[in-house]
Design a protein around this nucleic acid. Structure first.
Lengths: 111, 111
DNA sequence: TTTAGTACTTTGTGATACAAGGTATTCAAA
DNA sequence: TTTGAATACCTTGTATCACAAAGTACTAAA
């Protein structure tokens, strides 16, 4: 069995992952492996089997588009780019996130 | 299909719900319907079919215990009480939550 | 005795994170 | 030339979980 701590963290990551991806892509286009690296650096551990389907989902929903680009160090990379629709959804996510942060504060704060 | 906004909010609720329940019960014991009311008041909408299985799961994991109490206004109520183990897990969840909030800030903040 | 209100429970469905394994490209060393 | 390492993308199967919907049961009032 996995440790309780990891379970807790894993549970909380769910639901904000989509938000993280759109946030990262709102700043600059990126390909899957580089997104994983960035998430790892930010302590948001994600594996390939999670990220690839998620990117494909967001592309199918029209939040992202992509283009292929050659690499000097291996196979070509699929660079994802956020769309206008994606930016609109991201803006909604910003609000939703703020609301949840505020809700937790309320639940923990005042008796 | 459900609205995008609701989808976004629903996704984000996942993973913090357990945290909310333990937080509420760390302050005072409560029964399911009253927990739903409190969550609704804090803008964290949850339905019965979500909450009851969750409480049962947390009880089975030893985070909660419960006792029955008669009500003058209907059927008896199942009052849930957080256990020592539950408080330990809640403490871990506090850290995990702070970490995620901080991670999101990092991902959004610095270019 | 029927209805309204309250409270707890279960079943079926869809979504999704993850583990594990697979495919494909490039380059360098044997 | 072919083998292996590194990089990158993709798929399948499983478990978990939020939710909708329907069900059970108790109390009090009409």
């Amino acid at each position: 069995m996995e440790s309780t701590v990891e379970n807790v963290r894993s549970q909380m990551r769910k639901g904000v992952l989509e938000y993280c991806i759109l946030s990262i892509l709102s700043r600059k286009e990126a390909y899957a492996s580089s997104i994983i690296d960035e998430l790892k650096a930010a302590n948001m551990i994600v594996v390939e089997g999670t990220l690839y389907p998620l990117l494909i989902r967001q592309k199918n929903q029209g939040y992202l588009s992509y283009r292929w680009e050659e690499s000097t160090q291996g196979p070509p990379r699929k660079y994802y780019v956020i769309t206008d629709k994606g930016r609109a959804v991201l803006s909604e996510m910003d609000s939703a996130w703020q609301e949840i942060v505020s809700t937790i504060r309320t639940l923990k704060g005042d008796d």
